[in-house]
Design a protein around this nucleic acid. Sequence first.
DNA 1: CTAGGCTTCGAACGAGCGTTTGAAACTTTC
DNA 2: GAAAGTTTCAAACGCTCGTTCGAAGCCTAG
Lengths: 259, 259
Amino acid sequence: MATSESRASHATRERLLKAVEGLFLAHGYDGTSARMITADARANLAAVNYHFGGKEGLFQAMLARRLDALHQERLALLDAYERIAAGRPLTCERILAALFVPALRLAREPKRGGGDFLRLLGRAYVDPSPALREFLSERYAPSIARFKEAFARALPRIAPRELTWRLHFVMGALAYTLAGADAWKLIAALNPADASNDQLLLRRLAPFLIAGLQAPLPDLTGEDPIVSLEATRQARSRGSTNKSRASTVPSTKAARRAA
Amino acid sequence: MATSESRASHATRERLLKAVEGLFLAHGYDGTSARMITADARANLAAVNYHFGGKEGLFQAMLARRLDALHQERLALLDAYERIAAGRPLTCERILAALFVPALRLAREPKRGGGDFLRLLGRAYVDPSPALREFLSERYAPSIARFKEAFARALPRIAPRELTWRLHFVMGALAYTLAGADAWKLIAALNPADASNDQLLLRRLAPFLIAGLQAPLPDLTGEDPIVSLEATRQARSRGSTNKSRASTVPSTKAARRAA
DNA sequence: CTAGGCTTCGAACGAGCGTTTGAAACTTTC
DNA sequence: GAAAGTTTCAAACGCTCGTTCGAAGCCTAG
């Protein structure tokens, strides 16, 4: 003990983490190779395995460094709210605030999160690689469980099974919207006071998520009310623009015969 | 001419398209290999190159088959709305309806879309592979341009540059939310009348997107109103749960020394 | 100054990747 | 039923992947 994790500069470690952060954002897990990372970090190829045990370990360390802080603050905020509530169930608004206020705060802290934090959150949420999916779902399962419990007390009418799905949806919509909101912020690049956009954005997002959480269970059994009031006839009767469109994708057989 | 595209059964082509659809949904572009696809489709490895010219061509053909129909219906609906409007600008609600009503309709048509259509839409939108990103942005640029033009007429106060960003955000939020809404639908797996959930979902999403589109330009210049009303003190003063957390990710140096 | 633990380095390994090839099998046409 | 065209097949190609290895370099403590 006390040997590693402390003394030396670990400059290479830091450079690798920085590099993999940017590359993961741009290319995802499968699209980022160890050689790309070490080239970007100006480190030797073997450094990934030496410092992190492999590509998977490097990505997990990068994600843990960013997301541990997020879930830590989320739980702290949830604790604070529940202490204030003194036993009574929290409102959905409060629980949602505990979910995304820390995300916004970290996005504004260059040290623990940074400007790309929200985009990183979105990427991590949608990346299909099992190495990341398993890591995230395992490591943050306790945090998710705490929030699920809070929602269960706030929404006693929703069965636990359904609540699991809805919470999953909330987390997804949150990550997705925040990730999108990052591009949003680029709009105000000229104006340095871009902060309140986040606040406005979430003020609008919250009612949407709350409505979704409280939505009635599927017992309306209506025939098919969908899309009924919206132009059922137009798009069908008209042959649309024209049908020459599909030819843009070559069928390749013709291409090979030509050669 | 007239030789290909028509006569034979093309059963292998169809099986490959079906297989790549499911595999892309589960593993993304980089995570899906040609060998996985041909194994799943019970076809020879070379079939991918014979029928589609390569892995990239197969993915593009699969996406084109699903998304061409979407954008075709979107444009047809936009045309219909503009014909009714007779020169006057459309409302944002109408334009948004032209964007996502076709998506919902295709999701309910097993032939041209299918139950996984919305998830496929989301995956396609977030996949980081250049082969897909370039293809999508090039092929559907005209469609996007048409909608941007419609929004520009509906929102004359928003500068074109900003509108580009906001439209991009709308498309993202739409795809993301619809993709999330698919998991949503699994809730009602028991109940076959799960249709109106989509409608409800989009009824809530539309006001959110419209508010975002019409949001005032960043001129509030407030100091830093963010997160001010939400628990600035609690999460900081308290050391949160405990700091033993980070040990779950091994530093690998210790692991290697132990061996 | 020297010994010993970290860290870096170049080189190589086996495995899996997308793609190519030429022959075999099948289908269609006359 | 032979000829021509289309599709399938097994095998191999060159390449990149993540990982491993032993030697060399570096820093620090004795």
